[in-house]
Amino acid sequence: MSLSSFDKQSSSLQRLLVGFAEDVEMDAAGRMLVSNVLRDFAGLEKQTMLVGQGSHFELWGMDAWKAQLENAIANDSLTLPTELEGFSL
């Protein structure tokens, strides 16, 4: 929200991100209803993938998620960020 409204790129990005924002409540079973507008925008169909990202999660259509994984695996130029250089399992 702190982006300049006079910058066309910032305005466009803000419109995209904030324009689709919705407050959502979980039902008694812990489910959330994703609106038709958001389902259409994200290309969500019958099968989806819920991906944890630490402080948030992402909801992907299954085909888009598979393409994302294939792209990440095929990208040989992946390097660890400096924050993860000492990370080990």
Rank of each mutant, 00 (worst) to 15 (best):
M26W: 12
T48I: 14
L89C: 11
P81Y: 02
F20K: 14
K8Y: 01
E25F: 10
E70I: 00
L50K: 06
A21S: 15
A28G: 12
L17N: 04
S35Q: 10
E83Q: 03
D27S: 10
E22I: 13
K46L: 09
S5H: 15
A72C: 04
G61E: 01
V24I: 15
S11R: 13
A42C: 15
S35I: 09
S55M: 13
G52N: 10
K46M: 06
L80P: 00
L16V: 13
Q14N: 11
Q9H: 11
G19F: 02
A64C: 00
L44Q: 08
L69K: 00
Q14V: 07
A72M: 13
V51T: 07
D23C: 05
V34S: 02
S2I: 09
L13N: 09
L84I: 06
Q9W: 05
A42Q: 09
P81H: 07
M1D: 09
Q47R: 07
S35V: 09
A64M: 01
V37F: 14
T79F: 11
Q53N: 06
R39M: 13
S5M: 15
M62Q: 02
T82A: 08
T48G: 12
E83L: 03
G61V: 02
E83P: 00
K66T: 07
K8G: 02
L13I: 08
D23A: 13
K66D: 02
N71W: 01
M26S: 15
R15C: 08
F57L: 07
I73S: 12
M32S: 01
T82F: 01
L89N: 11
D76N: 04
Q9G: 04
A21V: 08
I73N: 11
M62G: 00
Q47N: 10
R31A: 09
E85A: 13
S55F: 10
D63W: 09
E85Q: 14
A67R: 14
G52D: 11
E58N: 04
T82Y: 01
G52Q: 05
L3N: 13
L80F: 03
V37P: 07
Q53I: 01
D63S: 12
M49Y: 06
A29M: 12
V51G: 00
D76V: 08
A29C: 12
A29G: 14
L17E: 05
L84W: 04
A29F: 13
L50C: 10
M32N: 00
S11P: 02
K8F: 03
Q68P: 02
A74I: 06
S10C: 11
I73Q: 13
S12H: 03
K66C: 01
V24M: 11
L69G: 00
K8E: 10
A21Q: 15
L13G: 03
G52V: 05
G86Q: 15
A67D: 07
A64V: 00
A29T: 14
E22A: 15
G54R: 08
L50H: 02
D7R: 10
P81I: 04
S55L: 11
E58Q: 08
G52H: 10
R15S: 15
H56K: 05
M26C: 15
G86N: 15
E58H: 04
R39S: 09
M62W: 03
R39H: 06
A74N: 11
E58A: 03
E58R: 06
S12R: 11
D63I: 12
K46R: 12
E83H: 02
M26P: 13
H56S: 05
L84M: 09
E45F: 05
F41C: 00
Q47L: 04
G19W: 02
S88W: 06
